[in-house]
Nucleic acid binder design. Structure first.
Lengths: 164, 164
DNA sequence: GTCTCGTTACTCGGATATCTGGTGTCCGAGTTTCGAAGG
DNA sequence: CCTTCGAAACTCGGACACCAGATATCCGAGTAACGAGAC
């Protein structure tokens, strides 16, 4: 049940993009963390479909943040990558058990499903309460050099790394 | 990232067993919800390894609750089936980014990992706060006939169903 | 009638196939850029 | 010098292989129950 690693890639990439103002191509973003470019591109496409990123084709194109970092919650990113389905899936096996089942939706009435849904909502509430901007603020407080370092590294990777 | 359906099977099976006092074999428990017997057995083995169930071999054997229903939380069941790993996995891709990484454990220091861990804990706290006994009480209030129905159905399935 | 013992049947438990979804890769469609040619 | 046009290079986007984990199954090890036989 572990989460796709694409979530980690997406979160850090969004943070990096929040320090930049120009579009950055997939290859550059992938080289930043030595990730497989084509697969990262797949994840970024999902973010773009969710409106978190905006993509521009052609030379000098790439991805940039689709809206302010304050308006991007961790839940938005998780949902974009993993989908909006609940963690617990209720296949309504009670249908096969004893008792009457006249059109009952056990996803709503089953006590287990309700409890699991409650835990699910608690998880989502936590994720919705933290934005990429919040995390950015924490990072900048702990490591003030991060924005400049990131911008420098991106610029270096853009024009072809000399150390290769 | 959806949860294994074995969790749903395990929860309902634990509830049913809480209404019984004698061991019930896998085949009977599987027939109750028309589940694949061998695969359900695999899940029950996991519960037994976690101490939630106790298994007794031989004739008149089977599975019974390993401890009181009040002492079995939903988190216990989920952990037994899905494992104790966090929902969010941090592969520490920051190691490949700019800056110094002298033996830093990003699972602890990365702001994203911290936030995700917080949401994870909120989820687990909710699950740990509900026991199988709590759910049993809700079910008995809404459907007082459930315990008797379950016992009757189990007894019927035990000695070979006549309706087959 | 009671005890002993062997057989039997039943149960769990782990080792073994199959299949869906996550992982990884590739090539084509579209667009911007740049430069050259013409006015 | 300015405008126009065309070719080229770059980027995203979705379609195509590959692999791990979940799903599903089977058979053997071990054990309790039961019945027959002896005392």
């Amino acid at each position: 049940m572990r989460m796709s690693q694409g979530v980690e890639w997406a979160l850090h990439t969004c943070l990096n993009l929040s320090w930049l103002d120009t579009p950055v191509p997939t290859d550059t973003l992938a080289a930043f963390y030595e990730l497989p470019p084509a697969y990262l591109n797949k994840q970024l496409q999902a973010l773009a479909r969710a409106g978190i990123l905006t993509s521009t084709p052609g030379p000098r194109g790439g991805f940039r943040l689709g809206r302010a970092a304050e308006a991007i919650s961790l839940l938005d990113v998780v949902t974009a990558i993993e989908g909006a389905e609940d963690l617990f899936r209720c296949d309504q096996i009670l249908d096969k058990g004893p008792g009457q089942h006249a059109g009952v939706d056990y996803r709503q009435s089953c006590a287990f499903a309700q409890a699991m849904r409650g835990a699910d909502l608690a998880w989502r509430r936590e994720l919705a309460g933290r934005s990429v901007a919040d995390v950015r603020a924490e990072v900048e407080r702990a490591h003030p050099e991060s924005p400049a370092d990131t911008r420098a590294r991106i610029a270096e990777l853009r024009k072809g790394p000399a150390s290769r």
